[in-house]
Design a protein around this nucleic acid. Structure first.
Length: 221
DNA sequence: AATCGGGGCAACCGCACGCTT
DNA sequence: TAAGCGTGCGGTTGCCCCGAT
């Protein structure tokens, strides 16, 4: 015997919530609290199923929700928690008061995953995608060519424009980020390459700037 | 100005789990 | 012990917005 659906589907509204529905749900919950989600829509006068009401409340209407973009510290923490917990979004969200599991999951899928791939890390395992440590993140340039962060870092022209960066050391993520932020021209030549530090150290770097990857001239694979 | 495509986010779906009967 | 029920969770979908063409 299969499970009963959580509600009768017939006659119930679906899709985006209206302001009036939000108002009804919020007023009801603030006045009466939540005893049984199945009863909430009936008592609140809503043509929604209880499950939909619960989701709307948790993800959008709760007064303690924190709005706005994720900070770099939050992103770093999400990555660390994901490495430990995997896709247990509710457990991860529990560490972020005011954030929802849905919000964190969406942020992971739309932003952090891409950035990890750029760093040569598998978002599922947090291990390098390649077997070797010298994984080169691949960048696509405006002119359609592909290159790597190594190439950018070792480009003579960029070196000239970033003379505050030593070329005799392994670049830090700050170095790469700085150079990528100022990258507004196409590469003309490649020079010697070097071994990158293990990518995980980039993420752990306290000065790591994700914004470095928003350079309009670059896109991620 | 119109169209297209991609990104981001809200919401839905189905399953799992724990509690009750 | 098994069935029913309510809720939570994670994956997926669909829609809207915005930038590019």
């Amino acid at each position: 015997m299969g499970r009963q659906p959580c509600c009768e589907k017939n006659g119930l509204r679906r899709g985006p919530w209206t302001i009036d529905e939000d108002h009804k749900l919020m007023t009801f919950i603030l006045n009466n609290g939540i005893q049984c989600w199945r009863l909430v829509p009936k008592l609140a006068g809503l043509m929604r199923c209880g499950k939909s009401c619960r989701l709307r409340w948790i993800n959008y209407l709760r007064p303690d929700l924190k709005r706005g973009a994720f900070t770099e510290a939050e992103e770093d923490m999400i990555i660390q928690l994901h490495a430990r917990l995997g896709n247990r979004w509710s457990k991860i969200a529990a560490q972020f008061p005011g954030r929802t599991d849905n919000e964190i999951k969406n942020h992971w899928n739309t932003r952090i995953k891409k950035k990890m791939k750029f760093l040569g890390l598998d978002p599922r395992t947090h291990h390098p995608i390649e077997q070797h440590h010298n994984v080169e993140p691949i960048l696509k340039l405006e002119n359609g060519e592909s290159t790597s962060s190594h190439t950018i870092f070792n480009n003579d022209k960029i070196k000239e424009e970033n003379n505050n960066i030593s070329i005799d050391k392994t670049p830090t993520i700050e170095d790469i980020g700085y150079m990528m932020m100022s990258h507004d021209h196409q590469l003309e030549s490649c020079t010697t390459s070097f071994e990158l530090e293990f990518p995980q150290t980039w993420i752990d770097s306290p000065g790591f700037q994700w914004d470095a990857f928003n350079d309009p001239g670059l896109s991620f694979h």
